[in-house]
């Protein structure tokens, strides 16, 4: 009653739809493109209003935003470093600069954290680079390794004027 060709076409459509449905079921919940994000927020927890000029020993209040989309639980270690114009930093090389502070956060997949940062720079400094580097704790090696994410803030640190 129905042509064999029509039957074959219907069969093919059903098979393709079936394979697609099973593939969807099998891959659901899998993270296709894992990533971690690191952001620097101003004193109002917003992108902006960053300090540019600060006094030596003045508390700089900022916020760090860390976001985990790696598809697994992560132990992040954020190092705050004080660099300058010549400090080399990129995705593969971390800054060779003194560490001002360390922040640690454990995040399951899909979670984020906003960490308050209070830092003081003890001495006057022109074109100081406040660098925040993302490192991760590797449970297999039991050590932290640079994760290639970093943010920075350029600052001029002046000495307080004596009246």
């Amino acid at each position: 009653m129905i042509d064999d060709e029509v039957k074959a076409v219907v069969l093919a459509i059903i098979i393709v739809a079936g394979v697609f449905a099973v593939a969807q079921l099998a891959t659901s919940g899998r993270v296709v493109e894992p990533f971690s994000a690191l952001g620097l927020l101003g004193p109002e927890k917003k992108i902006g209003d960053y300090p540019k000029e600060v006094l030596a020993n003045q508390t700089i209040n900022l916020y760090l935003f860390v976001d985990n989309h790696e598809g697994r639980v992560m132990y992040y270690v954020i190092y705050a470093k004080l660099g300058n114009k010549s400090t080399v930093i990129n995705e593969n090389v971390s800054a060779s600069a003194p560490i001002l502070d360390t922040y640690e956060v454990i995040l399951p997949h899909g979670e984020n954290a906003t960490i308050p940062v209070s830092i003081k720079i003890p001495k006057p400094y022109t074109n100081a680079r406040l660098i925040f580097e993302m490192w991760v704790y590797d449970p297999e090696n039991r050590s932290v390794s640079y994760y290639g994410r970093w943010v920075q803030l350029w600052l001029n640190v002046t000495s307080p004027q004596i009246p």
Partner: peptide
């Protein structure tokens, strides 16, 4: 944390434990 990461690899839902 290391144990938790291992547990996650074994299929455990570690969301609340990680928090």
């Amino acid at each position: 944390y290391s144990r938790l990461a291992e547990a996650e690899k074994a299929g455990a839902d570690v969301h609340d434990a990680a928090l």
